[in-house]
Amino acid sequence: MIDHSIDKNGVRVVNKKRPVNLDIATISMPVTATVSILHRVTGVILFVGLAFLFYAFDLSLDSQEGFDQVVNALQTSFIAKFIIWGIVSALMYHFVAGIKHLFMDIGYFEELESGQLAAKANLVIAAILILVVGVWIW
């Protein structure tokens, strides 16, 4: 696999003139990489989204009026529905990817084939959950 050559002292050294491609735009992302970066992206979304969840949590337990306000917003406001759908979608993805991660911790899905399959399953399961959540909210 690795290119070797003999240097002037007769020692075998790794040939450093191997081709290197660091032009990210020409490298297609493997599905496993896409799934991994989305795990990070959804994590950041959740951290920001927590502000909305805490706000709703606070308001809903503050008083009957506050509770009604939250329920009303989630039943009538498109923006409120969209925000909660976005947050819960990120949560669903992050949840599925996290479970996949735990499986990988105990040694599953580590081969190329099973890894790619698990990554695809992650995308499919998360997509289904996100659709279900959308139906639930609307």
């Binding site: 990070r40 994590g43 950041v44 959740l46 951290f47 927590l50």
Partner: peptide
Amino acid sequence: SWIGLWSI
């Protein structure tokens, strides 16, 4: 979130 965001 601290461990995750720290890593990122």
